[in-house]
Amino acid sequence: MTDTETTHLLHRLNYRMVTETDDRVVMEMDNRPDLTNVRGALQGGLLATLIDIAAGILSGRQVGAEQDVTTADLNIHYLAPVIDGPARAEATVVRAGKRLIVTAVDLTDVGRNRLAARATLSFAVLDRRS
C-alpha cells in the first residue's frame, strides 16, 4: 500500500469489500467507539458514505471503459441504529440505462441481524475526461 492508501480517510474507517460481482457489491465497516454517536450507534453520515461507495462501485461495473459514474441522487430510509455491527451494505442494480443507473442498497447490522437502512441511488453515466 502507498502512503496515500494507508492515510486516506476510507482506509482509516476500515470500509472493506466482502463480495464484488457485476450484479452485487457487498461492503462492511465495523462499529468502533470513535465512529459512533452519543447513543453508541454508527454515525448516519458514515453509513450514507458506505452505501454510496458500494452502489458507486457496482454502478461503475455497468459502464464501458470510456465512461465513469457520479452520484445523481441518494435517498436513505434509516430504520434502526447499527449498534453491534459490522454494518453491511448490499448493493444491487435496479436498472442500468445508457445515461442513468439506479441501484438499491440494504444496510444491515450484522450482529443483530437487523435491517438498519434501505436506500435507492441514481448514478449519471458520464464520458470519461481525457
Rank of each mutant, 00 (worst) to 15 (best):
T2K: 07
T2I: 06
T4D: 14
T4R: 14
E5K: 06
T6A: 14
T6S: 14
T7W: 12
T7A: 13
T7F: 12
H8R: 13
H8A: 12
L9C: 03
L9Y: 11
L10A: 15
H11M: 08
L13Y: 13
N14G: 15
R16L: 03
M17R: 09
M17T: 12
M17G: 01
V18G: 08
T19P: 13
E20G: 06
E20A: 11
T21Q: 10
T21N: 06
D22R: 07
D23L: 08
D23A: 11
R24I: 06
R24D: 07
R24S: 08
V25A: 12
V26Q: 10
V26P: 10
M29E: 01
M29I: 04
D30F: 00
D30N: 13
N31R: 14
P33S: 10
D34T: 13
D34Y: 13
D34H: 15
L35R: 13
T36N: 04
T36D: 00
N37I: 00
V38T: 07
G45D: 02
L46Q: 02
L47R: 00
L47Q: 03
A48Q: 07
D52R: 00
A54H: 05
A55N: 00
A55P: 00
G56T: 10
I57G: 09
S59A: 15
S59T: 05
G60A: 13
R61T: 12
R61F: 09
R61Y: 07
Q62I: 12
V63Q: 09
A65C: 05
E66I: 14
E66Q: 09
E66W: 08
D68S: 14
D68L: 13
V69W: 07
T70H: 01
T70Y: 00
T70R: 03
T71F: 01
T71G: 03
L74H: 04
L74M: 07
I76H: 10
I76M: 09
H77I: 06
Y78K: 00
A80H: 11
A80N: 07
P81A: 08
D84H: 15
D84P: 14
P86I: 12
A87N: 01
A89R: 04
A89D: 03
T92S: 15
V93W: 14
V94D: 09
V94N: 02
R95K: 09
R95M: 11
A96K: 10
A96M: 08
G97N: 14
G97Q: 08
K98C: 01
R99M: 05
R99P: 02
R99S: 11
R99V: 06
I101G: 05
V102M: 14
V102C: 06
A104P: 02
V105K: 02
V105N: 11
D106Q: 12
D106G: 04
L107C: 05
L107F: 06
T108C: 03
T108A: 01
D109N: 05
D109A: 03
V110I: 13
G111E: 05
G111R: 05
R112W: 09
R112K: 12
R112H: 04
R114N: 04
L115H: 01
L115M: 01
A116W: 00
A116I: 05
A117F: 02
A117S: 07
A117N: 06
A119H: 11
A119D: 15
T120I: 02
S122H: 06
F123E: 01
A124D: 02
A124W: 05
L126M: 13
L126E: 03
L126D: 08
R129G: 15
S130H: 09
S130L: 03
